[in-house]
């Protein structure tokens, strides 16, 4: 099943509905990459709330999505990582690197507003 990508103003919201296979993850990456260009989006939100497992491939793909988006002019925020998933990720050493994260969709939108409207003046995270 394709991950639905919703366009909300200048942002794209990819709302994952169920556990994804590796192929579906790559498809998501390609879809987002294409749509960022088509809609000239400033920000991308990937909502992973429903995922209760995050393997290294998923983490790598999310990182790739963020990097690709960045190169095409869009900030990416991963939202909705569950406590158990976060804990497992740090224990397994799966790092998202510089990718922004937020608690949920609302937070992600607020963060994107901050990042894109106020230009490069980063307030949080040294």
């Amino acid at each position: 099943m394709r991950v639905p990508i919703l366009k909300q103003g200048g942002y794209l919201i990819a709302s994952i509905q169920s556990a994804l296979s590796d192929y579906e993850l790559l498809q998501l990456r390609d879809d987002l990459s294409a749509q960022v260009g088509r809609f000239r989006s400033r920000g991308v939100i990937v909502d992973v709330t429903v995922l209760d497992v995050m393997d290294s491939f998923a983490v790598r793909t999310l990182r790739a999505i963020a990097q690709i988006g960045h190169m095409r002019g869009a900030e990416t925020v991963i939202v909705g990582i569950q406590p158990e998933v976060a804990f497992a990720m740090v224990q397994l050493g799966l790092a998202l690197g510089d990718v922004e994260t937020a608690l949920d969709l609302e937070e992600g939108l607020a963060l994107l507003d901050l990042r894109t409207k106020r230009g490069e003046s980063h307030v949080t995270e040294s």
Partner: peptide, 13 residues
């Protein structure tokens, strides 16, 4: 460090 990283994944500083 793990605690900090995990919190960051949930969007908290």
């Amino acid at each position: 460090v793990q605690t900090v990283d995990a919190s960051r994944l949930m969007g908290a500083t």
